[in-house]
Amino acid sequence: MNQLMIHVERIVRPVRARQSRKLRMRRELLGHLQAAMEEERGKGADEVAAFEQAKQRLGDPAELTRELQRAVPWFEWLLLARTPDKWNGWEKRAGKWFGIYDPGTIGNWLILYGSGAIAVLIICIVSPRVPPQVRTAVFVDELNHPVHTKVILAVVWTMQWLWLYIGMRFLSAAAVPIGRFRPWRAIRIGILMLATQAFLMILIITQIVRRSPTLPEMAQSLGVALLLLGAGILVGRGVAKLRRPYDEWLALDVKA
């Protein structure tokens, strides 16, 4: 059974598709291989010969991987496409420090787009209420210069995006391996995220409004960060739970 699973995993693992789609591929191919093996045994082949025959009948693994990839909708492939390693190098180092790095848990593009989209939402809904100085500057145009509004929005968006990107990356890593949520890791991540948020807050206020943030402003900002972090942890736990059916597959060593 394990050998069959390893063969299936070699075919399916390189496919860029969402996990539920890949799980379906795995289950169907495994079922097929088992049925083919049974048929070969019925013809009198021994265990090893039946396995080899069933593998051969399935076809060339690399070719099958390509065919399966072609059956995945393009937008799914795009979201889960691998970003260049040089983009992720810092993450690997930071992740190692936290002991949580697991590349490709969630597609890089998904995280890039996802954090961008959430940052836009935050800017539209939450941020105007978070640092009052920024809200004033953006909406009342306290600085009395039309260019400033756009610059401020761009800076705030970039910072929120960065913050979310780091957070999502680390939360995605915290949910593996595999199927268990690690509270201590989440706490370490939480501290990092809150520190980043505090830093961003100070930066925004001191650079844009040119004064130090007050304590209530900091508390307000960190409160929102905590809420986001809580939501992230819930998502992380959900992801860990969802990943359970994939564990036995992901734990397989498929190196030849």
Partner: peptide, 15 residues
């Protein structure tokens, strides 16, 4: 048939 190629075909038809 290469039996494995049946499955991508099934996925395309289902999609």
């Amino acid at each position: 048939l290469k039996e494995g190629s049946l499955y991508p075909a099934l996925y395309r038809l289902e999609a």
